[in-house]
Design a protein around this nucleic acid. Structure first.
Lengths: 333, 333
DNA sequence: CTGAAAGCGCTTACAG
DNA sequence: CTGAAAGCGCTTACAG
C-alpha cells in the first residue's frame, strides 16, 4: 500500500479508501489506484484489520476423535456443511480434533489457548467437566447434536425424542408388540432421547412391561462399539439408535438365519445414505443434518457479533422414511 | 499486556519477555508477572505477531466437492491426518471446498484472495487451467494424490503404477489370463497409472491382445459415476481402480448370478476399511494415506519456511493385501 | 536486568 | 476530495 501511494503520489489513506470502495476518493483517482494496485501485484493483507477489531474471522469446530468413524461419516457431512455455511458468511472454519486424553484432562483446546477463533462449535457429545472448562473460557460457543442439563447453553439438536416416538408408533401400528431397542442410552443425549421416545411409544400402548429384556447395548458408555448380543427371546422388531447399528444388526440376523423383515423387522435412525446401499432399504428417521449445521453456524455468528445472544435449545425436526425393513403384521390376521 | 505492566509497575517489554520465556527478565519477576497475568485473565493475542512476520500459521486444504463422497471418505481420512499433523507442527488447517463451477471458472480460492494462509495443499485432481491459475499466485502449494506433466511442482502420490502392476501380476500368477479393468483411466492421474500398471502386467505375459474388450468405465471423464456395463464375454478376473467400485461390481455380479470368486475374481485398490465390511474380503492394494498426508504437510511447511524448497514428486509405496476375492485357477488343473 | 522507541500494514476520526 | 496523526497489541533491536 505504501508503495502504491508512493508510486501514485498520494497518501496511503487515499489508497486504502480507494481499494476498499469507501467514500472520500474521486472516482477517477479510485480507478487509477485500483489499476496500479493490480499492476504492482498488490495483495491485501487482512491481518492488520483483524488486529484493530481484535477478531479473527475464524470459527473452530471441535469434535471428539471417537465420532470420526470411517464409513459412517455423518459428522464429516455436518462439518462440510458448516464450512460451506461459514464461507457464505465470510468466515473460515478450523477443525480441532479432541483426543480421548485431552477430553479427560480437560485440556484447553489449542484454538482457544492461541486465540485463533472468535467462536467455537462443539460437535458431538463431550464430557461434562470438559464442557465446564469450555464455559469458563471467554470464547462464545454452541453445542451441536447434543445437550445436557446445562442452563443458558445454546444447543442445536434433532428432535430425537419425537422421531423415535414416531418410528416406534409406526411399528406398533403395523402390529408389533414385542419391540427391542438397540443402543446404549447412557452414551449420548441423542441416544437417551431416542430411547425415551421409544419408551413413550411403548407406554402409550401398554407394551413396556418386559422392556428391559429387549434392551441391547451397541457400545460402552464411553462410546466404544461392542458386539451386539441378541436376546434369548426374540422380539418381532428392533428400534436401532442409528442406521449403522441397524445395518450391523441386519447382517447379524441374517447370519443367524433370520430373514428381515419376514422374521424380524428392523428400523434405524439418521437416514444416512451410504448405509442404505444394500439390497434392503432400511426404514428410518431422517435427521436433517444440513439444517442443523446451518442453524448452528447462524447462531454461532450471531453470538460472536452479540455476546448476549442466547437462543437456548433449538430443535430440528425429523421425518419418517418408510422403506422395506418392516413387516406389516396386521395383514396376516 | 499494558494493564499487566501498569499493575506491576513495569514496562510492556518486560511483560512480553516474561510471558514468552525470553531472556532479559529476572526469574523472580517473571514468576510474578506470570501469576498476575493469570489472575487478570490475560489471554495472548497472536495477531500482532502474525502481523510482524506477515504470516498466518494457517495452511489451506483445497479439495474439489466431487471427491467428498459420502461413505467413501478416503479424503476425509486424509484431511483428518493433515489436520493432526499440522497441529503437531504448530499450524492450523483451513478447508476450502471447490465447487465444479469455481473450478471451471478458475476462481481464485477465497483463502488466497484474502491472504488467509501461508500455503495450500491441493487434495485430489483438479483441472489444468485451475492449476495454472494457482501457480500464478504467490502462495506456495503442493499437490496431494495427483500430479500432471507439470514441471517443478511438488506432489505426493501413491505408487499406483507399481501397486496395480503387483496385483495384476498376482492374478496372472493365480492362473488368470483374461483380466478386465474397471475404471475410467482418463479421469485422474491415479486411475491412469493404475491402468498402466495393469497393462504392464498383461504385456509382460503377452495377455494384452484383447485388452480393449475388457475395459469398463465406472465414471465419465469429469468424475461423475456411471453404471457399470459388463462385457459380453466375461473375463475370469477384474482389476478395479478402487475398492468402492470393486464392491459395486461384486454386488452387480451377484445380482447377475455370478459367484465371487468362484466364477469371477475381483480385486480393488486403496484398502479402504469400511468397504471391507462385507461377507467377502476383497483382495486389494493398500494405499498408505496416513504417510501421504504426513509427507504432504512436512513438505508444505518446508516450502512455507523456504520458498526455494522444491522436492518434486514423492512416491509413497503400496502393499498387497490378500483376502478372499481371488480364485486360484492353478489348483484345478 | 530493564525499558524507550520504532515498527508490523492497515483503518478511523478528524482537520483542512 | 485529500491526508497527517494516532492506534490496533505485540516484538525487536538497541541503549542504559
Amino acid at each position: 500500500m505504501k508503495d502504491i501511494a508512493k508510486a501514485m503520489g498520494v497518501s496511503t489513506v487515499t489508497v486504502s479508501k480507494a481499494l476498499n470502495d469507501k467514500d472520500g476518493v474521486s472516482e477517477s483517482l479510485r480507478e487509477k489506484i485500483k489499476e496500479k494496485a493490480k499492476k504492482m501485484g498488490y495483495v491485501y493483507n487482512p491481518i492488520p484489520r483483524l488486529m484493530r477489531n481484535g477478531t479473527t474471522n475464524n470459527i473452530a469446530i471441535l469434535v471428539s476423535k471417537k465420532f470420526l468413524v470411517r464409513g459412517y461419516d455423518v459428522y464429516f457431512q455436518i462439518y462440510e456443511t458448516i464450512i460451506d455455511r461459514l464461507s457464505n458468511k465470510g468466515y473460515y472454519g478450523i477443525l480441532e480434533v479432541l483426543s480421548k486424553q485431552a477430553e479427560f484432562d480437560c485440556e484447553i483446546p489449542r484454538v482457544i489457548r492461541e486465540s485463533k477463533v472468535d467462536g467455537l462449535i462443539l460437535l458431538g457429545q463431550i464430557s461434562e467437566p470438559y464442557l465446564n472448562m469450555i464455559s469458563s473460557q471467554k470464547t462464545p460457543f454452541v453445542l451441536l447434536d447434543f445437550y445436557g442439563s446445562y442452563e443458558n447453553m445454546d444447543t442445536i439438536v434433532a428432535d430425537n425424542f419425537f422421531g423415535s416416538y414416531m418410528i416406534t408408533s409406526y411399528l406398533i401400528k403395523n402390529g408389533h408388540k414385542r419391540i427391542g431397542f438397540v443402543g446404549n442410552y447412557k452414551a449420548t443425549s441423542s441416544i437417551t432421547d431416542r430411547y425415551m421416545g421409544y419408551l413413550k411409544g411403548l407406554i402409550e400402548h401398554d407394551l413396556d412391561k418386559d422392556v428391559h429384556r429387549y434392551l441391547i447395548m451397541d457400545r460402552d458408555p464411553s462410546g466404544t462399539p461392542i458386539d451386539i448380543d441378541l436376546p434369548k427371546e426374540m422380539p418381532t422388531a428392533f428400534v436401532c439408535n442409528n442406521d449403522e447399528v441397524a445395518n450391523t444388526l441386519i447382517i447379524k440376523l441374517k447370519e443367524m438365519g433370520y430373514r428381515v423383515p419376514e422374521d424380524v423387522s428392523v428400523v434405524g435412525f439418521d437416514n444416512f445414505e451410504k448405509i442404505q446401499n444394500l439390497a434392503l432399504g432400511i426404514t428410518t428417521v431422517e435427521v436433517d443434518f444440513i439444517t442443523m449445521a446451518s442453524v448452528s453456524v447462524d447462531i454461532m455468528i450471531k453470538k460472536v457479533l452479540d455476546r448476549k445472544h442466547n437462543p437456548g435449545r433449538q430443535l430440528i425436526s425429523c421425518r419418517l422414511v418408510l422403506r422395506d425393513s418392516v413387516r406389516d403384521l396386521r395383514k396376516e390376521k
